[in-house]
Simulated scan of single mutants.
Amino acid sequence: MDLFTGELLALDLVNTRAATSDGEADALDDAAGFTAWLALQTHRLSPLPAMTRDDLPAVRALREHVRQALDAVRQGGTAPDAVAAINQAVRAAPPYRILAGDGTAETRRDGDALTCLLAQLAEAAVDLLSSPDVERVRACEGPHCRMLFLPAHPRRRWCSPTLCGNRVRVARHHQRRKAAERP
């Protein structure tokens, strides 16, 4: 699966599951796919844990809760069970700051690697869901695409101009050519 990243962390998490021309693709199907996705998040997650197949169900469950909460907010509602699960993940490993020996501050969390990762991902979801920007989150208009994005420009319609945008433009071009060829 080509990983679509570059959005807010919570949206990138939701976008690990996508519809492709070959069917469903899920970066969380195996530890290798998830490790590849994590490697793209090095600037946002620390430390990057080594994940195993046993860790994936918990990450997939959190992803689904984030998706449910986003869908509810985008439709003007709420998803209390999803919000409770997100909050529980944040509370499992809350961040705290300490003073390092060199005089710099570090943010740390207590807990195993999975618990800390889930807390960071859930915290990113809290940041998005509590932001006024959440109302601007859009679903890609590409056929069969489910990617979500936060448009920097109000006219943006696709997750990626080179992926879905190009597919839509090519399809329109073919339709115009077919229409022009008809007698």
Rank of each mutant, 00 (worst) to 15 (best):
R109Q: 11
Q120I: 02
G76V: 00
G6A: 03
H174A: 02
Q75S: 12
G165T: 01
R44P: 05
R182V: 13
T16S: 14
D133E: 15
H174C: 03
A18I: 07
S160P: 13
P49E: 01
A124C: 08
E123M: 11
T20S: 14
A152D: 08
R109D: 08
R169D: 14
H173S: 13
L13M: 09
V90A: 04
L56A: 03
P154L: 03
R67Q: 14
L114Y: 03
P49M: 03
F34R: 11
R156I: 01
P143K: 13
Q175L: 09
Q88D: 15
P49N: 01
G142C: 12
A180S: 13
L121T: 02
C140D: 00
H153V: 11
L99S: 08
A93W: 01
G33M: 07
A72K: 06
I98H: 12
P95H: 07
A50N: 11
S160N: 13
L28I: 01
R108W: 06
A61V: 05
S130G: 15
G111E: 03
P57F: 00
V170A: 02
D26M: 03
S160K: 14
H174D: 00
L148C: 05
W37M: 00
T107I: 10
E181F: 08
A179K: 01
E64N: 10
R136H: 12
